[in-house]
Amino acid sequence: MSAPVDPEVLFDVTVAAGDGWLGEIPAGGRLRIVDLHGNQAVDTLLYDARDTANRYSAVDTVRAQGSAYLTTGSVLRSVRLDPLATIVDDTCGRHDTLGGACAKESNVVRYGEHTRHQHACRSTFLRYAVAGGLEKRDLTHNINFFMNVPLTEAGGLTFEDGVSAPGKHVELRAERDILVLISNCPQVNNPCNGYDPTPVRLLGWAS
């Protein structure tokens, strides 16, 4: 009987506050996102690495699982309902996929003209997407790991803090070769980052 072999580490990177990341996870590989300092929204998009039009779909994912929040067991599906990844571990407990990403333009709508030139996730998404051969059309409604956006039975929606904490993590298993596009959210106008955006750690394993 041989000792178990440690899975091959693909990467171990820290994404600075307000920065982004684009990388590939092979089928069967895993990605762990660690909320190093707590209450940090990590805006995330997934693509079939071999056919990027087959991309993450928030509404198809939510409908297929019959519930609004993501946690362990949630299958993150594409527009064609293909499983792109599964959440296999989650010490936070719940993640949003209906609140979308911040953008300069939506910041102006939400908070006023004075926020127009603040940094925003959509710009980060685009910067990393374009470098990877994608473009604006390829952006869609994302996942917000570690973000708490409660829906109410009366049809309300709010942004709240409070579910994540320093060191909490979420882990995905790739169900096919996937591209992962991340914006470590720089939003300072609501509690999604505790009004203080901080770094996160990304750990990738081949299995």
Binding site: G99, V109, R110, L157
Partner: peptide, 29 residues
């Protein structure tokens, strides 16, 4: 390439549903 953005529409108007007199918003605000 400017199109309806449901998350932006919902979060800006603090709603999980669409109803009058809400505004349907694009990704460009």
């Amino acid at each position: 390439w400017e199109r309806l953005n449901v998350p932006d529409t919902l979060k800006a108007q603090m709603s999980a549903r669409i109803h009058p007199p809400m505004v349907l918003m694009s990704d460009m605000g």
